[in-house]
Lab assay of single mutants.
Amino acid sequence: DWREIAKLAEEALKKQQPVTVNGQTFNDPNEIKKLLETAQKAI
């Protein structure tokens, strides 16, 4: 669910920690931002 992904990505950016989505881990803040943008577009 994109809403859940957006929430996870936002928290990861705030806490500056990696986030795992669908078994894929994102460590890079730039990648997390991209993930968040993608999720927000999909909602």
Rank of each mutant, 00 (worst) to 15 (best):
D28C: 09
L13C: 02
L36F: 07
L13E: 01
Q17P: 05
L13F: 04
N30G: 12
W2P: 05
A42C: 09
I32F: 01
N27A: 06
K33T: 09
A12Q: 02
E4Y: 11
V19L: 15
I32A: 01
K7W: 13
T38E: 14
T20C: 07
R3E: 13
Q16F: 12
Q16E: 11
T25Q: 08
G23V: 01
I43P: 04
N30V: 14
I43Y: 04
V19P: 01
F26N: 00
Q40H: 11
Q17R: 11
Q16I: 07
I32S: 00
N22K: 08
E11Q: 10
D1T: 14
Q16H: 14
Q17T: 13
V21Q: 01
Q17H: 12
A9N: 00
T38W: 14
T20V: 12
N27L: 11
N27W: 15
D28I: 03
T38M: 15
P29M: 12
R3G: 12
T20G: 02
V19N: 00
I43N: 05
F26V: 06
T20R: 08
L36M: 07
V19Y: 04
F26Q: 02
L36E: 02
E11N: 08
L35D: 01
I32W: 03
K41L: 14
I5T: 04
A39V: 05
I43C: 05
N22F: 15
Q24W: 08
K34H: 11
E37N: 06
K33E: 10
Q24I: 15
A39G: 02
T25P: 04
L35R: 00
L36N: 01
D1K: 13
L8C: 05
L36W: 12
V19Q: 01
G23D: 05
I5V: 07
N22A: 08
Q16G: 15
G23F: 04
D1N: 14
D1V: 07
W2K: 02
E10L: 15
G23T: 03
A12R: 00
W2T: 02
K41N: 13
P29D: 04
V19A: 05
Q17Y: 08
L8M: 13
G23Y: 03
E31N: 04
F26K: 01
I5S: 01
L8F: 04
D28G: 12
F26M: 06
I43F: 03
W2A: 04
K14F: 12
A12I: 00
I32P: 00
Q24S: 08
F26D: 00
A12N: 02
T20N: 07
D1Q: 11
L35V: 05
K33Y: 08
D1H: 14
E11M: 07
G23I: 00
A42W: 14
E31V: 09
P18L: 04
E31M: 10
Q16A: 12
I43S: 06
Q40D: 04
N30K: 14
E11T: 07
L35T: 01
N27D: 11
A12C: 03
A6S: 05
N22V: 04
I43G: 05
Q16V: 08
T20S: 10
E11C: 11
P29G: 05
E37L: 12
E10D: 08
P18T: 08
A42F: 13
G23N: 05
Q16W: 08
G23M: 04
V19F: 10
A6Q: 08
W2C: 05
E37F: 05
D1S: 15
A12D: 00
E31F: 09
K41E: 10
E4M: 13
N22S: 07
N30E: 15
N22D: 05
P29F: 12
W2Y: 05
Q24R: 13
L13Q: 03
F26C: 03
P29V: 12
L13T: 02
K33W: 11
E4W: 11
L13Y: 04
L8V: 08
L35P: 00
L36Q: 03
E31T: 08
L8N: 06
W2N: 03
I32K: 02
D1E: 08
T20M: 08
T25F: 10
A42S: 09
I32M: 03
P29L: 12
N30F: 14
D1L: 12
F26T: 04
V19H: 01
F26A: 00
L13V: 04
K15E: 09
L13P: 00
E10R: 12
F26I: 10
N27Q: 11
I43R: 03
Q24K: 14
Q24E: 10
E37V: 06
I5R: 02
D1Y: 15
T25N: 05
K15R: 13
K7M: 14
L35S: 00
E4V: 11
V19M: 15
N30Q: 14
D28L: 04
E4C: 07
N22T: 03
A9K: 00
N27K: 14
T20Q: 08
T25Y: 10
L35W: 04
P18S: 08
P29E: 10
L8D: 04
E11K: 06
F26W: 11
A6E: 08
W2I: 03
R3N: 12
I43K: 03
N27P: 03
A39N: 01
K33H: 09
F26Y: 14
A42Q: 13
Q17W: 12
G23L: 03
K15M: 12
I32Q: 02
L8T: 05
D28R: 03
T25H: 08
I32Y: 01
V21A: 05
L36D: 01
P18C: 07
Q16S: 11
E10F: 10
Q16C: 10
K14Y: 14
A39L: 06
K41H: 11
P18N: 06
L35K: 00
K7V: 10
N27G: 05
F26L: 09
L13R: 01
T25D: 04
D28F: 13
I32N: 01
K33R: 15
E11L: 07
E31A: 09
T38L: 15
A6Y: 15
A42K: 09
K41V: 10
K33M: 12
D28W: 15
A6P: 00
L8G: 03
L8H: 05
K41I: 12
N22H: 09
T25E: 05
I43T: 05
K34T: 11
E37Q: 05
N30S: 13
